[in-house]
Simulated assay, not measured.
Amino acid sequence: MTYAVGMRLNRGLVFMSDTRTNAGVDNVSTFNKMFNWTVEGDRSITLLSAGNLATTQATISLLEERTKAPEDRSPSILEAPTMFQVAQLVAATLNDVIEGHSRAGQQADSAFHATLILGGQIKGGPSRLFLIYPEGNFIEAGEDTPFFQIGETKYGRPILVRAFDPDMSFSETVKLLLVSFDSTIKANLSVGAPLDLLLYEEDSLTAGTRSRFEPDDQYFRTISEGWGDALKVALSKLPAYEA
């Protein structure tokens, strides 16, 4: 299982994903689920993945190969003129990979599904954020839906719904996301650190600032313990139930 979040702020885009994959309690591994393509001064594109690992790796590999192949290749996300067209390319690639499994004789094709969060900015347009489904369709974030989650979403969603503000600073947003991830990690052992973070400043057209929170990261531990203590204090201040 995976947990990943993409957020659209007034200041730019924020992405966070865990790195845990597992095929049973005795087979736990760490894999990168955050990918970025950047042409300095022209575009920055970030992709988060959740779902079948073979499907997501094949999709990423195809997207990467198409940025390097000869002129007779398939369209590249580094040449698409808008983020909407990038979303179309990524969605079609994901759908092709899933259908390829089916044509190869796989029976339970739902087991090979994957979901993606795509965000970025191309020169001349604003930053945009999309949620791409395995069927090859997608939706875009807006004022009413300013963030997307994929994977194990239910445990970390309440704090995002209650506390998200598009005017938040990057610092405040990272704090909010760490609380969301901490809640998910505590509730589901299939989600875990290291946690990857990418901060993209609007109109910078750079790769953004990327960092990683290891399992023993002191700031992450401080947030986790502080949030737990704060919940206990808040609960104690609520009015008592009288039978």
Rank of each mutant, 00 (worst) to 15 (best):
D165V: 05
D216S: 09
L235K: 12
R43S: 14
S169Y: 09
L131E: 04
A91D: 00
F84W: 07
V14D: 03
R43A: 10
V5I: 15
G125E: 13
N36G: 06
G125H: 12
L13M: 08
S169L: 15
G228V: 06
F170M: 14
I132P: 02
P70W: 11
R157N: 12
T38L: 02
M16D: 01
K175I: 03
D229W: 12
G100T: 01
K186A: 14
E225Y: 09
A141L: 02
L231G: 05
D144R: 15
V39E: 14
L118H: 00
F213R: 10
S76Q: 07
A54G: 09
R73E: 05
D18F: 05
T115Y: 01
E65C: 08
G226K: 07
S127P: 06
P239V: 08
R162C: 02
V5H: 04
L131I: 00
V14C: 06
N188H: 11
V179R: 15
G24D: 01
R157H: 12
G142F: 05
T173P: 08
R212V: 12
R11G: 09
D42V: 13
S49G: 11
L9M: 07
A243D: 08
I60S: 01
S49D: 01
G41R: 00
L205I: 11
F220E: 05
A58R: 11
E135A: 13
E71S: 14
E79M: 13
D109F: 09
V5P: 03
F213I: 00
A108D: 15
A163S: 10
R73H: 09
F31M: 01
I122L: 08
L9T: 05
R212M: 11
L176C: 06
L235V: 02
Q106P: 04
E64C: 04
L199E: 14
F112E: 01
P146N: 08
F84E: 13
T93P: 01
S236Q: 14
N22C: 13
L116K: 02
M1L: 05
N10F: 03
M168S: 15
F213Q: 04
D165H: 14
L62R: 11
P158V: 13
E135N: 11
T67D: 09
I159A: 05
E201R: 15
A243Q: 06
L13W: 00
L62E: 09
T2S: 11
R66N: 12
S171W: 10
E64D: 14
L47V: 11
I223T: 10
T93I: 02
G156T: 07
Q107D: 10
I122E: 03
N22K: 08
H113I: 00
F35L: 04
G192E: 11
A4M: 02
L48R: 04
S169K: 15
N32M: 05
